[in-house]
Design a binder for these strands. Sequence first.
DNA 1: ATTGGCATGTAAGAAGTTACATGATTAC
DNA 2: GTAATCATGTAACTTCTTACATGCCAAT
Lengths: 191, 191
Amino acid sequence: MSKENRSRYAILGALSIMPLSGYGLKKFMERSTSNFWEENFPQIYPTLKQLEQEGLTTSLLIKQEGRQEKRVYSLTEQGREELDRWLRTPPALYQVRRNELLLNLFFASQVEPAITLEHVRSYRARVIESLKHLEGIEQQLPTFINESTQPRDRQYWSMVLSYGLLEAKANLAWCDEAIVTLEQLAQEENK
Amino acid sequence: MSKENRSRYAILGALSIMPLSGYGLKKFMERSTSNFWEENFPQIYPTLKQLEQEGLTTSLLIKQEGRQEKRVYSLTEQGREELDRWLRTPPALYQVRRNELLLNLFFASQVEPAITLEHVRSYRARVIESLKHLEGIEQQLPTFINESTQPRDRQYWSMVLSYGLLEAKANLAWCDEAIVTLEQLAQEENK
DNA sequence: ATTGGCATGTAAGAAGTTACATGATTAC
DNA sequence: GTAATCATGTAACTTCTTACATGCCAAT
């Protein structure tokens, strides 16, 4: 439909690994791509319907014992082609990602350094959390592969993971540096 | 008005450094915060009007020789308080930033490694560009200060800059690592 | 003449988030 | 009984981007 809608490709990509229901798609993303890509239900369900209308997916109602039936989607040949076409297209231009912490810091000379120090400290805590999360995934990668049909995915997934790890480590290093600076500024204030 | 609208604060922040017109605001952001925060005209002009209605800014029509007159906005006392209140609020929770390159890589086992290699190479070129840009700003920082009224900004701005530099260097290191891996995968394909 | 910078906006559409709405089963 | 997980969606709203629209001045 639209040119910029990349949710389609996230969904086509996931379905290329295994057929999934809307709910299953969300769970799949939470387990795998959540560090750099997520979709919510209000995006997933309408998109799945639309993809089916366009002939890129087909769905089957699966009956389950003691549980609500679910509609499981899989890629059609056309869907695979569309995914392939997108994979060959250079990813969108570097778009400025907004960073509210940096925006805050940019104007932070107007409040006491102790305030900003707190902001950076809690950011640091989140970076640590995210780093631990990624290291957890790193150890589970070999297991993750068994579930997947394509063993070649492993190398790609570990590249993606490495991106996150390097970035998190850089962020952590920055936090430590910034905290030292802010502690000094806070001390100077108290004199 | 709304809870999540942070464009307001980017604008209030910029005006706290110096009074600016809508056009001037855009230029100011391009020169300073563009690596982590940008606003477009369709956001800037309506927001400025709204801020004035709320009493957070006041404006003056400035006549210029041989040029169209401009409306220059500055913060009111109330505007300063609103900015101060925001500066004291912890920046929004870590929100997942979508990364289309990583999404592409995650599913990239389905195309030839040479394709993905090209994507990473052009990403690398953009990282290098951005790194050079940041290093340029680093050298201009002392000059930048003279224009500003608040000399204390310098330390904060250099912290913000350092964030960008560390991140860009981490991204670059990742690119080099990924390129080696992809070159190997591409060679294996050719055997 | 034509490009680039200064200057201000509107309209329309796309994208994304939050809240709402429902209901079954399983584990504690 | 109550929280968590499975399961599917809609409505409303906010936010953001692109395209459109205009016009002056300075420099090449």
